[in-house]
Every structure is written in structure tokens, then in C-alpha cells.
């Protein structure tokens, strides 16, 4: 019983990180139908920005440090969109996708050459004592940082949901996702919407990066592995759907934690991708995605 609860928290923590990344993939896809292959690397950059801030500005309290890292990473994400993607918005779709691949490799190598290829851990800034209540009542050993990571992530997702569903900018975002061509006619600034989407997606990814660096470790190539997992999660949930991205992330994390606990950690990537392929064969548009009708 106690180990099951511990595994549940492990899965929730991993799922929360996946969800923070997956939301960026899903939002960008929803709005401009682009698979932003560089998004995993934005997550990695977020982790390293967090590392830099904790080591250089150690006096900064965590509740200021994290927003600052999120803002800096958001600026990076917006800059990438502005420099590399915007000019290609009306080009062949594959050109943009390939550009995102290029941006991803660039970021990986840039961090590797400037910071170094080593695996690092972000110095712990969240309390790591066990949660007393859980230990006494359920006998489960769960640390405060794990619990906080899960709770803050859920809070961020809730804020995102409110922004998308309850604000003017969110309404505009949903309108663009529905029909990109009509929205500019209605006086909405398309560039602004896309910039905001990239900013939000990158900021969430940065939060994921910091959490991941606290809970596990960071390295310049983590964006490939983690990014892909999060992307799978977004696709499983139905890319373009916020609820789907969150659902898919927790589902994938659960499967992975179970695989590691009961099978072998070597198999987790294979099983993750196997799950993706199986699900796509059953639900070609993901669990929460919308099918499109062939137009002739």
C-alpha cells in the first residue's frame, strides 16, 4: 500500500513535468498547426536558466526566482518564433517543421558548448523533508518538494485553463485555433496571439525544466528525450487540446512508472513509443482530439 502511494506520487511528479512541456506543444499546434520540434529544447533552456539563477543569484527567494526564469525563457521562446518561424508562416509546412528541428539542434549545441555537456542538478531550493501527515497516516514516504512540484504545476495548469477560457486573449486564442484565416479580419492581431502562445508555452516549459532539475537532473540533451515524451503525451491526449495534453501526460507518466517499477527501466522508452503507436492506430486523433472531414 505504502509503495503504491509513493509510486503514485512519483507518477504525478513526472506527469506534472510532462504536462508543463506538453501544453506548449499542444497550444502551438492548436494555433498554427506546427509541430515545434524545438520546444523540448526550450524546456532544457528553462532548466539551465533556472540553474544559472540559483547559482548566480542565490539570495533570490524561490517564489521570485521561478517567475524570473519563466519570463527569461518566455523571451527566448518568443525570440525563436520571431526570428525563425514567423517568416515561414505561409511557406510549405515542412519548411517550418525542419526549421524547428534546426533550432532545436542549435539550442542543444549552444548550451553544450557554453555550459558544458555534464549532467547537473539544480541546487535544492524546495524543502526536502518528508510530509509528516502522509507518513503517519498512510505510511508513505513523500517529500515536500515532490508534493510542492505537483501542486504548483497543477496551479499553473489551472491558471492556464482560466486564461484560455475566461479572458479576452484566451478567447482570441481559441478563435485563431478554430480558424486562422478569419480572425485577422475581425480585428484581432494574429502576431500578438501567436507571440502570447509561444510566451506561455515557453514559460510553462521553463517551470517544467526547473522542477525537473530539482527532482532529477539536467543536461543539454534532456530536451530530446523529455521533449519527445511530452510530445507523445500531447499526441496521445489529442494534440491541440489542453485537457488532452494534461490527461496524456499523467497517463504516460503512470505507464512509465509502472514499467520501471515492475519491468525494467531499459524498456520505458520503447514502451512509451509503443503506447503512442498503438493509441494512434486506435484513435488517430488522440483521446480528446477532433477528427477532420476529408474535403473534396
Amino acid at each position: 500500500m505504502d509503495t503504491i502511494i509513493q509510486q503514485l506520487f512519483n507518477a504525478a511528479q513526472l506527469g506534472a513535468v510532462y504536462a508543463l512541456i506538453a501544453l506548449g506543444y499542444s497550444m502551438v499546434y492548436g494555433i498554427i498547426r506546427l509541430i515545434n520540434f524545438a520546444h523540448g529544447d526550450i524546456f532544457m533552456v528553462g532548466g539551465f536558466v533556472g540553474l544559472l539563477l540559483t547559482t548566480r543569484l542565490g539570495w533570490l527567494p524561490f517564489y521570485l526566482l521561478m517567475p524570473l526564469a519563466m519570463i527569461l525563457t518566455a523571451l527566448a521562446g518568443v525570440a525563436v518564433e520571431r526570428v525563425a518561424y514567423r517568416r515561414l508562416r505561409n511557406a510549405q509546412r515542412m519548411s517550418v517543421v525542419i526549421t524547428t528541428l534546426g533550432v532545436g539542434i542549435f539550442l542543444e549545441n549552444f548550451v553544450r558548448l557554453t555550459v558544458g555537456p555534464e549532467t547537473r542538478q539544480i541546487p535544492a531550493r524546495l524543502p526536502s523533508a518528508p510530509v509528516h501527515w502522509l507518513q503517519q497516516n498512510l505510511g508513505a514516504f513523500v517529500t515536500w518538494d515532490k508534493l510542492l512540484i505537483i501542486l504548483i504545476s497543477l496551479a499553473l495548469m489551472a491558471i492556464l485553463w482560466l486564461v484560455v477560457n475566461r479572458t479576452l486573449i484566451g478567447t482570441a486564442m481559441r478563435a485563431v485555433a478554430d480558424n486562422k484565416d478569419v480572425v485577422p479580419l475581425m480585428g484581432v492581431n494574429l502576431n500578438l496571439i501567436i507571440t502570447v502562445t509561444f510566451a506561455i508555452g515557453s514559460a510553462l516549459a521553463a517551470a517544467g525544466g526547473i522542477f525537473y532539475g530539482q527532482a532529477y537532473s539536467i543536461d543539454p540533451y534532456m530536451g530530446i528525450d523529455l521533449g519527445w515524451k511530452a510530445f507523445i503525451a500531447a499526441v496521445i491526449g489529442g494534440i491541440g487540446s489542453i485537457e488532452g495534453a494534461v490527461l496524456g501526460s499523467f497517463l504516460l507518466a503512470g505507464v512509465e512508472v509502472i514499467t520501471v517499477a515492475y519491468l525494467s527501466s531499459n524498456l520505458k522508452n520503447g514502451i512509451a513509443f509503443g503506447l503512442l503507436i498503438l493509441l494512434l492506430l486506435v484513435w488517430p486523433w488522440g483521446i480528446m482530439g477532433k477528427p477532420t472531414l476529408k474535403k473534396v
Partner: peptide, 17 residues
Amino acid sequence: RMLISPLILIIIMLTRQ
């Protein structure tokens, strides 16, 4: 040079698809 190869790719896509 590992930084330059992705830059080449991006520049090709931006200028000569």
C-alpha cells in the same frame, strides 16, 4: 561547427527552401 550546421539548415529554410 556543430552550432553552424543547424544554422545553415535554418538559413536554407528561410532563404532558399
